[in-house]
């Protein structure tokens, strides 16, 4: 239904995500125009999938390199209140007007996977847990960055409370806007990884992910999903909305 509406009022911004998908299909032709494909594949031009395969393999390799570089005790830099970026930017694969509006009173966070206590959590429940706040820089995969003031429950506290299997490989997130992503367990247990409920000491505004998002200052912005409706713990690689299209999965900072 949402889709029909956006089609009628199709502005360039509305179709931006589709354009990106088309861009991806153009990827091979562009590579050809630079002659890079032939140089790298060293075979016939029909072997474009081999080049993409090599690039995917390198991205996997870089996941491992980044996991090795990652330190669970190294903290992202924190900033003074005066450093905070005014009007923290909205960013998603759709426009701000399309951001899902969630009723925080009836909202329940669902849990699944390798978790002992899968009882759903309300926002009020989450606020009874220890809260922490941070002023950190969010770095977008596009290159820009913005400093914001986030507050909420450290994810490691929450994972302890629900009896999550911390030996599992992945923590995954499903969102109300059909977005999804996943992170490695070491990053999930990092002290600055928080289930954010607040921005600037107020409940998150809708564009920033009300009522619940994850804030990870050691990862790029797209690894900080908003409007989270479900958290799961698993050993099966869950991927992500952008990751499945080619963004590097680990994407650590």
């Amino acid at each position: 239904m949402k889709r029909d509406k956006s089609l009628i009022a199709a502005t360039l911004k509305d179709i931006a995500p589709d354009l990106k998908r088309i861009e991806r299909r153009l990827f091979l032709r562009q590579s050809l125009s630079l002659g890079a494909l032939t140089m790298l594949s060293g075979c016939d031009l029909g072997s474009g999938n081999a080049v993409q395969g090599a690039l995917d393999a390198m991205s996997k390799w870089n996941d491992g390199v980044q996991a090795a570089l990652f330190s669970q005790t190294r903290l992202a830099k924190t900033y003074a209140p005066s450093d905070i970026t005014p009007n923290f930017p909205f960013n998603a694969f759709y426009t701000e007007a399309e951001a899902p509006v969630i009723n925080g009173k009836t909202y329940k966070l669902q849990l699944s996977g390798k978790i002992t206590d899968k009882k759903p959590w309300s926002i009020a429940d989450l606020r009874t847990l220890p809260q922490e706040s941070q002023i950190t820089r969010l770095i977008c995969v596009e290159g820009w960055s913005a400093i914001g003031h986030w507050g909420g429950v450290p994810l490691h506290v929450f994972l302890d409370r629900i009896g999550a299997d911390k030996t599992a490989k992945y923590v995954g997130f499903k969102c109300a806007d059909k977005y999804y992503s996943s992170i490695d367990m070491p990053t999930a247990l990092h002290p600055q990884t928080i289930l954010a409920l607040d921005y600037a000491d107020e409940p998150l505004p809708t564009p920033l992910g009300y009522p619940l998002r994850i804030r990870i200052p050691t990862k790029l912005g797209f690894k900080n999903p908003k409007f989270i409706t479900e958290i799961f713990v698993t050993n099966d690689y869950p991927g992500g909305y952008w990751e499945d299209q080619g963004y590097n999965w680990f994407s650590g900072s």
């Binding site: 861009e23 991806r24 590579s31 995917d56 991205s59 080619g246 590097n248």
Partner: peptide, 13 residues
């Protein structure tokens, strides 16, 4: 090179 941001990042890295 790369066609879109994700492709360009793959080439770059």
């Amino acid at each position: 090179l790369g066609g879109w941001l994700g492709g360009a990042l793959q080439w770059h890295f």
